[in-house]
């Protein structure tokens, strides 16, 4: 029925939106109608941006971070420590780590996380190229910086399974109390993890 109501062009836009993660029929319609009513240059700017991202940006051939040059600026930077690789789930995680300013090594972007329940397997991620990289480049330490949640933990376990046989040092980001917080207001989950991950002092 919607076909008759909206016409072919709008339907095509709606079904394109629906292919995006987390977007259902109603959201797709809302986005499509928004663009339908938006000024022409605004809508076309989006089209331009989509074209550019596909034509210019691509995953770095070494670390899979999004880049317009290959290798990416981080992989190409001679001042980075090449013996350490920090494994993250998605490109925004690289930006977050970089903002912290405390990390001088390289990265590896998995382009997702294992989800046993939703059916995302380790083979759907860039784990095989990571194993290859560690083997080939004599990496000494791999920092597992997957998210501290169920899928991040599942991902870390598969990374450990794949990397352990190589004898590389594996570390995982500490989890626990945020700096500047107080015990009184910490959640049970955070407190119990902080306790478990306590360090010698």
């Amino acid at each position: 029925m919607s076909e008759r109501v909206y016409g072919e062009a709008v339907n095509r836009l709606i079904s394109s939106f629906k292919k995006l993660p987390g977007i259902g029929q109603r959201t797709a319609e809302r986005l499509a109608f928004h663009l339908l009513l938006a000024p022409k240059d605004e809508a076309l700017a989006l089209a331009e941006a989509l074209r550019d991202v596909k034509e210019r940006a691509k995953p770095c051939s070494q670390c899979f971070h999004v880049t317009e040059t290959d290798p990416c600026p981080i992989c190409a930077d001679p001042r980075r420590e090449r013996g350490t690789v920090c494994v993250v789930e998605r490109p925004p995680d690289v930006l977050a780590m970089e903002k912290s300013g405390g990390y001088r090594g390289l990265y590896h972007v998995l382009l997702g996380s294992v989800s046993l329940i939703e059916g995302v397997d380790p083979d759907d991620l860039t784990i095989a190229p990571l194993v290859e990289r560690v083997r080939r480049e004599g990496i000494q330490e791999v920092i597992l910086a997957t998210n501290p949640n169920f899928d991040g933990d599942s991902t870390a376990l598969h990374l450990r399974e794949a990397l352990e046989p190589l004898g590389v040092r594996l570390t995982r980001l500490a989890r626990g109390l945020p700096t500047g917080s107080s015990l009184e207001f910490a959640s049970k989950a955070i407190l119990s993890e902080a306790l478990e991950g306590r360090q010698r002092y």
């Binding site: 046993l116 784990i127 095989a128 194993v131 399974e161 046989p165």
Partner: peptide
């Protein structure tokens, strides 16, 4: 997953 053995992902 139940029959999966540890394996090198590569």
């Amino acid at each position: 997953y139940l029959r999966r053995r540890a394996r090198p992902v590569a």
